[in-house]
Design a protein around this nucleic acid. Sequence first.
RNA 1: GUGAGCGUAGCUCAGUUGGAUAGAGCAUUAGACUGUGGCUCUAAGGGUCGCGGGUUCGAAUCCCGUCGCUCACCCCA
Length: 440
Amino acid sequence: MDVNTEKKVEHTFKAPRGTEDILPTKWALWRNLEEAGRHEFELCGYYEIRTPIFEDTRLFIRSIGEATDIVEKEMYTFSDSEDSSITLRPENTAPVMRAYLEYELYKTKKFQKFYYIGPQFRKERPQAGRLRQFHQMGIEAVGAAAPLLDVETISVATRIFDRIGLKGYKVKINSIGCEQCRPVFRNILKEKLCEHEKALCELCQSRLNRNVFRILDCKNDACKTVSHHMPSINDYLCEACQSHAKSVREALLEIGIPYIADAHLVRGLDYYTKTVYEITHASLGARDAICAGGRYDNLISDIGGPSIGSVGFAIGMEATILALENVMARHKSVSQEVCGPSPSIYVVSISEETKKHGFCLLNILRNANLSADFDYEGRSLKAQMRTANKLGVKYVIVLGPDELARGDVKIKVMETGEEIVLKQNEVPKWFLNKNLSTMG
RNA sequence: GUGAGCGUAGCUCAGUUGGAUAGAGCAUUAGACUGUGGCUCUAAGGGUCGCGGGUUCGAAUCCCGUCGCUCACCCCA
């Protein structure tokens, strides 16, 4: 029983910085989210795809952009003893596209819808809901340019949040134009901002040359004042982008998804075009996004494929679960200890001799697809009853020397305290008539 | 990567201007007429006070370093 070892081990291990163990007490939340995701993805015609955890480093450099922070300092990159450099995937869009191209899926069917669920890696300073190994589930609708498809992806995300009962999320949407109109706007914006250069914070002054659009998103009050007087991207969208944006917004209203048009919403990655969106939850503080996505009409051609439009999103699972926990804590409706399903039956036996028979009975129950568990610690009857109670089982089977001698068992119905005596060979049948679910 | 705050039992936290065997609640385990759970009562186990160094007669408390966590920034698939 003594859990402590006599020998002190001088070094104990911890999960690496920025990683997290998901303990059994938390799994119900994760499973819930995953199942909600799968349900909605498949309901909407998306098919699961699993790509490798690591990829050729060049894939991410090409797709994400060489000059981005992600590529410059946040990737887990190493060489695998040959001349090749590999990288733990920092996102899942490029890998899905790579697979789409590698198997030339566009040749059999140009338009395809994929979903994925899995870990992603990014070496950065850990923060709440932001880890070095984190999990995303997302979709990629590849091969169509219709604005309605953008709307479908948004609706898939909100369906998932609705299904898990997450209240209070906000959909923010913007259009960042295409290769035609974005550069025009960028130049004008840059010109206008340069006029107010001295009013901007130090960081934004450097942004003038690196990433002008980010200035619109700066939290500094002075910068906010300046950007308030700046023109909006919406005034500079080309005709195609304008009508695309209009269609998206109309369709969102049509199907009843409220959104906030946020002209300051920008994207860090080069491959985004036209629609960008973000779903946020206010309970999360500064880093409040639980889902981010948009259209990327240039990505496939960027990585060597045909020119095919696509749209997709990724949901941050840690962030979503945090938001869900915050909401639950506020409503105090769910206990903090969230556990998975318990078995339905607990087999209690009293002596060494009856333990052997109890163990056989346990296996008979399991063979009949009844969920059941058993005491391996040799604890007292009372202790076993306590455990059964804590597990929340519906029934306890008591098999003591008396029962053994008579060839029967006692079944206790935990809810009522009622006890029933049965012949041992009648036990599985009795339970099967109870129509117990296989788990809990 | 930058800045700030925090680090005491499994968990949530007390710990007075540095002072004696470091506490509580919850959880765990065991008992309360010997084969029965929940409620109640009683008791027990569990901490080199994150780690290392320094100041001091004396450090959980002060100083330095280190690791980790948290929050914000950078950035964000």
